[in-house]
């Protein structure tokens, strides 16, 4: 641009805007301005990177809090105490990594205008993301069915087998519907029960006797807790179900829903749902973006959009790469 060709109207004064837009009125539309960009990036890409750095700080705060809370806690449950299954977690990690690959492939295809192929990879990415959420939902369901909620009224977690625990178990066993159900169980002929159920029934009867007495000793309550949901010993192989051992009373009779004892369990649940929950929200946002993209023609013109969506998706993937070992392995 030739500098001398530029008009410098700054010495006008008194023109302001009286008389409509007086001196500026002769412009049809406004000047198309030129810029001197400081980085060789498109606006979309730059803002996406900047946005992701705010996201990094967000998750850094959550992860930092997790680390502080975990190492400040007196006890912290082992993954198996809380029914976490490494294989399921690892599978989900794999799913997410695959989706990071497919979104790159979608971008590659779009760049060379293979719109059909791009769409196919995009659909696959979407499916993989949904699969991840599905697995996550299954895992959440497993927690819920074991009474592990992050919050108090619905959660059945107790930190230790103390008097509060005793009275919670007694309260649960004393509910009207429960009394009826227990009676039915007692009355069932032994032949109609599997050997496991039969043994569980005997143990349940003992437990009921133990908690019936309000002057419980902590020792007895520890036994009760162990019957309701035994915590696998260090290194012991874990049985069926969702990584937990499958022979607690709550496992044999899922309708029992007796309070359980997991030392450090409520804080564990709080942090687990906090971290995975915010991650899942980010996955959902990603899926919405993909859904929008699927409605468009994925050609080279859209490659910028796809690239940004991909950047975001890689970030979501990366967060999970941190979450998986922190939550499942250590």
């Amino acid at each position: 641009m030739n500098a001398s060709a530029i008009s410098l109207p700054h010495d006008h004064s008194g023109h302001g805007h009286d008389g409509g837009h007086g001196d500026d009125g002769h412009h049809a539309g406004h000047v198309h301005l030129q810029y001197q960009p400081g980085l060789p990036l498109s606006r979309g890409k730059l803002i996406m990177w900047l946005f992701l750095s705010t996201e990094i700080m967000f998750f850094a705060a959550l992860l930092g809090s997790y680390v502080v809370l975990r190492f400040g806690a007196a006890v912290w449950p082992k993954p198996h105490h809380v029914h976490l299954s490494e294989p399921i977690g690892a599978f989900n990690t794999f799913v997410l990594i695959c989706s990071s690959v497919t979104i790159v492939l979608a971008l590659e295809a779009a760049r060379v205008n293979k719109t059909g192929l791009a769409k196919a990879w995009m659909v696959l990415t979407f499916v993989l993301g949904t699969l991840f959420l599905g697995v996550k939902a299954y895992e959440y369901q497993a927690k819920f069915s074991h009474g592990i909620y992050p919050w108090a009224p619905r959660g059945r977690i107790h930190e230790r087998p103390d008097l509060y625990y005793g009275s919670a178990v007694r309260a649960r066993l004393g509910e009207a519907a429960m009394i009826e159900r227990l009676q039915q169980l007692d009355e069932r002929p032994a032949e109609s029960l599997s050997p496991e159920e039969a043994s569980a029934r005997t143990r349940l009867q003992q437990v009921r006797k133990m908690v019936a007495n309000p002057d419980q000793q902590a020792f007895d309550l520890a036994v009760v807790a162990d019957q309701v949901m035994p915590l696998p010993a260090e290194g012991a192989s874990h049985g069926a179900g969702h990584g937990g051992s499958g022979h607690g009373l709550n496992d044999t009779f899922p309708w029992l829903k007796l309070p359980i004892v997991i030392p450090g369990g409520s804080m564990w649940a709080s942090t687990y749902f906090l971290l995975t929950g915010f991650h899942a929200i980010h996955v959902i946002v990603g899926l919405i973006v993909f859904a929008v993209l699927l409605g468009l023609r994925l050609d080279a013109k859209r490659s910028g959009m796809i690239e940004n969506a991909g950047l975001y998706w890689h970030f979501v993937d990366l967060v999970w790469i941190f979450l998986f070992p922190l939550l499942y392995l250590f």
Partner: peptide, 9 residues
Amino acid sequence: GHGNFDFQP
């Protein structure tokens, strides 16, 4: 006005 500048700065 809209677009700020009536010339290229």
